[in-house]
């Protein structure tokens, strides 16, 4: 129950940040990615703001102890080496992001926007995720 409540608060903060920062607007995202055209640098400030908060606390508090404030172990990724799925996956994700201006967080935060377009995008996103899961399982 405690875990549900803290995760809900985290999601609310994250979603509020996405909306206030205008990261939820695909047109703004596409203008940020259009570096050879009329480049809009606004979203670089979003990443800067997020790193300003997360990086120091992670480095000075989480990294040494690897435990939460409730003294439970943190679940941290243990992979360190580059592999083909990472490289191929990142490139494919970038193509989809460039086509739509929507990455997963802003996509989900946009659900109450309520258009056919956002539901089609999220349905396709879930199909893509399921496809990879199926493919991994069959190997």
């Amino acid at each position: 129950m405690k875990q549900m409540l803290t995760a809900l608060i985290a999601g609310l903060l994250f979603g509020a940040g996405l909306t206030i920062s205008t990261m939820v607007d695909p047109l703004r995202v596409l203008a940020f990615l259009d570096v050879f055209g009329d480049w809009d640098p606004t979203l670089a400030f979003v990443m800067g703001g997020a790193l300003t908060v997360y990086l120091p606390v992670y480095q000075f508090f989480i990294k040494p102890s690897k435990r939460t404030l409730f003294n439970e172990p943190c679940h941290l990724p243990d992979k360190t080496r580059l592999d083909a799925p990472l490289l191929v996956g990142a490139i494919l994700f970038g193509i989809g992001w460039g086509l739509s201006g929507i990455c997963p967080g802003p996509g989900i935060a946009n659900l109450t926007q309520g258009s056919v377009e956002i539901f089609v995008f999220i349905a396709a996103l879930l199909i893509g995720m399921i496809g990879v899961k199926r493919a991994k399982r069959s190997h």
Binding site: Q3, T6, A7, I9, A10, G11, L12, L13, F14, G15, A16, G17, L18, T19, I20, S21, T22, M23, T42, L43, F45, V46, M47, G48, G49, A50, L51, T52, V53, Y54, V57, Y58, F61, I62, R67, T68, L69, F70, E72, P73, C74, H75
Partner: peptide, 20 residues
């Protein structure tokens, strides 16, 4: 955008600090 980004960071941080 910067303040919104800080909120995103705070949300991500809350999930790490409380849920690990």
């Amino acid at each position: 955008a910067y303040l919104g980004g800080m909120l995103i960071g705070a949300g991500a941080l809350a999930l790490m600090l409380f849920n690990g």
